[in-house]
Design a binder for these strands. Structure first.
Lengths: 102, 102
DNA sequence: ACATCATTTCGATGATTAGCTAAATATCGA
DNA sequence: TCGATATTTAGCTAATCATCGAAATGATGT
């Protein structure tokens, strides 16, 4: 939980997640969207990985990053729900919501 | 936005918000729930204040902290919505949701 | 085997953070 | 005004963080 919010506290990392919303992308392609160095981006990726907000897959020379949307959803909504925020829609969403939590 | 997630990244601060869910409380009463020193708690309160997650009211010797639930909701749901997470319930919630964003 | 490309690790630096004790500020009641 | 109570500020330390350039790792193609 702390690791997720910590990961989300950096604008660069939030934007990486936004980019991944459109689909998986390589470390290099992601990095091209930012001004900072590749080592710095690699560190940001590591934070996102440790928070389980992304997972990776190796493809030749490249490393492809995928968004773990369910982890983001569980953390955000799980926390919101303890405040009575963020409402429920249907039984299916309910069920998936009860499963995991970092 | 960053300030909110930064504030939420600390377990102590998250728990302070949880305590405030039951209603306003003084700095001292809140601090009594934790092991850390009062100055440390005061610093945590300052972080929550700067994120606008709480506001204060002076009552005699005490400072009363109030939860700003709408700020928490707007930040959490606003961000979640950009991922298609966190569904809508009714028109009224919709309208209030469109207003602010940190 | 070698050169190249993609990514991560290493090692360093300056900034920020959480924590503490001690001191300052503010309010109240006697 | 004095003393007690509630909270914050000041000053410090140790740990973590974002950032960099340089070096290491891993995979591909020649």
């Amino acid at each position: 939980m702390s690791t997720v919010f910590k990961a989300l506290s950096d604008p660069t990392r939030r934007q990486v997640l936004q980019l991944l919303r459109k689909g998986p992308a390589s470390a290099g392609d992601l990095a091209d969207n930012f001004e900072v160095s590749k080592p710095t981006m690699s560190a940001h990726f590591a934070v996102l990985r440790e928070a389980n907000l992304v997972h990776t897959e190796k493809d030749g020379k490249s490393v492809i990053y995928h968004l773990n949307l369910s982890v983001l959803e569980d953390a955000l909504m799980g926390f919101a729900n303890t405040f009575g925020i963020g409402v429920e829609r249907d039984a299916q969403r309910q069920a998936s919501k009860r499963k995991t939590l970092t």
